[in-house]
Amino acid sequence: MNTKAIANEFAKMKHRQIGLIIVLLAVSVAALTAYTSLGSGLLDRLDDPDGYGWKVMFGGVGMGVSLVAPILLAVLASRQVEIEHTGNGWLSSSTAGLTPGQMCRSKFVALGGLVVLATIAWGAILIGFGAAIGIETPIPLGRWAAYVAALAVINLAVLAFHILLSAKIENQLVCVGIGIAGILIAMFSQILPAWVSHLTPWGYYALTIQSAYVGLEPVYFDLPFLSVLGLAVIGGGLFLAITGRFDRQEA
């Protein structure tokens, strides 16, 4: 990996409001989760021995990330790639020996690191929130860690898709519009068969939801580790293959 190219991507972020979008990604999911959890009567059942508080917060994360992540990840990728289209960056970088594929991979590494940090921030903020309001049952740290790791993989898959899309389509409104469609897919995938959810990266937000109401009480669901692993392997392979093709194309 070209470290100079990655450093250059971070330099480009200074004028693209990337930091603000990352903060929004972290804070908005946490805020939506806290809001929906409080609306589910969390404060009235802080001493519930079955861990009601943590269960509704897990469910709230699933809702929050489905509503926020698809569009903000689309905007992140679009902002970072748009500069190459408007400033003839593909050609100028190519003359300096940096291919379009290398640039896409560098953008993914730079943005992906920030997206992972934002995803970890969701878990940290919400654990702190639960402890601060007084949930009395032990914090399910293992479940939190596994869920945050799964969401990080899904977020990276969505980010990679949008980097490729933004690189191929100059009209970034189209790319952002697909991000909005991703919200609908993530939400409707919750009521669709699991095999349908496996067909798009946004469907994995529904597949990995960790808690939902069954009757009158929330229950935990098992995390589909193999599905998430498959997304990582297939998504990573496709990204490398497609950016490899970009390397052989003229800018």
Rank of each mutant, 00 (worst) to 15 (best):
V65Q: 14
A69W: 05
G113D: 08
Q17H: 04
A34G: 12
T33V: 03
V116C: 00
G41K: 08
L67T: 02
K55R: 15
R45E: 13
Q102F: 02
R16C: 08
G64R: 08
P70Y: 08
I120R: 07
G59Y: 06
A26G: 10
A77E: 01
L126A: 12
N88F: 14
V61Y: 00
L42S: 12
V116R: 05
F108G: 01
L32T: 05
D48C: 11
D47A: 15
L111N: 04
A121K: 08
T33S: 10
A124E: 06
L20K: 10
Y35M: 15
V56W: 11
M63W: 10
A110I: 14
A69D: 08
I21F: 02
T86L: 08
M103T: 05
A121Q: 11
A30M: 11
L72N: 04
D50V: 12
E84Q: 05
G97I: 10
V81R: 00
Q102T: 06
G89Q: 07
V23Q: 01
S28A: 11
E82P: 00
W54I: 13
G51M: 06
W90Q: 05
I127Q: 14
G113R: 12
V27M: 05
V115A: 09
M63V: 10
T33W: 05
L73A: 09
V56P: 07
I120L: 13
R105H: 04
S94A: 15
S40H: 12
K107S: 05
S92A: 14
T36P: 05
